[in-house]
């Protein structure tokens, strides 16, 4: 199957502005977009830069804008897109080169919500106990792979890059609703600002973008409700 892959390329050391480059590649219909990108890099133009690690939808390295939607290049098949494929870097992050974006700010926001178990009581002799129901409470948000597809699909984030973003809120949710954790108040304080959860306008782009099927807007709403009930 011959496919035309159009890639938004940019090398800050050389180019004044990003430009579109087109490559004709030979792929199987069941190949992934990542295979098409690798074909370009290995056979047509070795200067093309993109991130990928596990290539199986778990590491979250290859999120990019594919045919206008944020997806993982390793999770979308060529046959789902047809003969023309457009690939752009994630929106709202500075471009380092081609499809590689600067995610420092993204991870700084992730660290800001304290993404680790906070517990000051003495540890039990065996392990922290948790019932299946208590575990189910935050199961959805444990699925996050930090690919940034949600945050970079969010118009609130595009409008204001200082917004903490859906990915950080999802990861705060994962601990706030964990029965073993005692740090909910600290995390809620971080999120209770005009640049925290209250910047979310329930646009739902994040839900559409998440390659892991996380109900992101619901998680954000649950954090908002937790803030409401903790301040009543």
């Amino acid at each position: 199957m011959r496919v035309m892959v159009k890639i938004k390329r940019f090398n800050p050391g050389r180019d004044r502005e990003p430009y579109w480059a087109e490559y004709e590649v030979d792929v199987e219909p069941v190949d992934r977009v990542l295979d098409a990108l690798e074909y370009v890099k290995w056979h047509l133009d070795g200067t093309l830069a993109f991130r990928r690690s596990c290539a199986h939808g778990i590491c979250g390295s290859d999120a990019m804008l594919i045919n206008g939607r944020n997806r993982l290049a390793c999770k979308v098949l060529v046959k789902e897109l047809g003969a023309r494929i457009t690939v752009e870097p994630l929106r709202g992050f500075p471009v380092i080169k081609d499809l590689v974006v600067d995610m420092e700010g993204f991870f700084a926001k992730y660290r800001a919500i304290k993404p680790y178990l906070i517990h000051d009581e003495p540890p039990p002799e065996t392990e922290w106990r948790q019932s299946p129901e208590e575990r189910a409470r935050f199961d959805d948000t444990t699925k996050c792979i930090l690919c940034a597809a949600c945050t970079t699909s969010c118009p609130s984030f595009w409008a204001n890059g200082a917004y903490i973003g859906p990915a950080a809120i999802v990861n705060a949710h994962r601990f706030i609703f964990d029965s073993r954790d005692r740090g909910a108040a600290e995390r809620l304080a971080v999120l209770n600002t005009g640049l925290g959860v209250w910047r979310c306008r329930t646009i739902f782009n994040c839900v559409e973008a998440c390659p892991r099927g996380i109900d992101v807007t619901r998680a954000i709403a649950e954090v908002k409700r937790a803030l409401l009930f903790s301040s009543l």
Binding site: A112, A162, Y163, A189, T193, G194, W198, S231
Partner: peptide, 19 residues
């Protein structure tokens, strides 16, 4: 370091959202 944090808005944003 994450520098985007505003000073906490207290209860106002919570109230506005609920309202």
């Amino acid at each position: 370091m994450y520098v985007g944090r505003e000073r906490p808005t207290g209860g106002f944003e919570v109230f506005a959202w609920f309202f």
